[in-house]
């Protein structure tokens, strides 16, 4: 379980997140909804350690931890970026195994074996040797998810997972997220789309811009 206690964040004196308290239960899906500029992305960037919070605390399974400083491979927060940010110079399989090989010091064979199940689950077998430019948006997203899952994250975060895709793919994304939930993965999903949020959420956080 991830717990946020009194988390605050401002940019150049402008308060974006004000004393936020939040609990994210294991194996559940939290959606974060709210208008543009409300600070949804900022919150996700704080949770995943891309921004330093001004004050407050994070507790992971009761242990205090600082995602901004943490280099601990046991408390990884995975992120699926809005524009995926796949590595264009690497094939799908190399995108997925890059971090396990370089960070977890697995051999190439080990790493490939270890991600076999993830590749299976996300239906990527056919495209593992392709490069990102050859993939459709939906495929890119599944690769981004696989890449994040390969590091065995405690939580997987998505920023607007439906925004870069054709609207007809929306149902597929919700199916995918619910399927990962079946497999016990804790997920945080930012979205503009209330209907989509309602379909997947165990818990919803509605954020508003700080006045």
């Amino acid at each position: 379980m991830l717990e946020l206690k009194n988390v605050s964040k401002s940019f150049n004196g402008k308060m974006i997140i004000n004393k936020l308290n939040l609990k994210i239960e294991d194996g559940k899906i939290l959606t974060i909804v709210g208008p543009s500029g409300a600070g949804k992305t900022t919150l996700l960037r704080c949770i995943s350690g891309l921004e330093k919070i001004d004050s407050g605390q994070f507790l992971l399974d009761g242990q205090q931890f600082d995602p901004f400083e943490s280099r601990d491979n046991e408390s990884v927060i995975g992120v699926v970026f809005q524009d995926f940010q796949l590595f264009p110079n690497l094939s799908v399989i190399d995108n997925i195994t890059l971090a396990p090989i370089n960070v977890l010091n697995q051999s190439e064979t080990q790493a490939k074996k270890a991600v076999g199940e993830i590749i299976d689950r996300l239906g990527l077998e056919e495209i593992i040797n392709q490069y990102p430019y050859q993939l459709s948006g939906g495929q890119k997203q599944r690769v981004a998810i696989a890449r994040a899952l390969a590091m065995n994250p405690s939580i997987l975060c998505y920023d607007e997972p439906t925004s870069a895709l054709d609207p007809e793919l929306r149902n597929e994304v919700s199916k995918l997220i619910l399927d990962l939930k079946e497999n016990g993965i804790t997920q945080v999903v930012i979205t503009h789309d209330i209907e989509f949020a309602n379909k997947i959420a165990d818990q919803t956080l509605t954020v508003k811009p700080v006045k």
Partner: peptide
């Protein structure tokens, strides 16, 4: 893209 560094970073690289 700065996002490439961020993608590396959230993968603990």
């Amino acid at each position: 893209d700065k996002g490439q560094y961020e993608a590396g970073r959230v993968l603990q690289m």
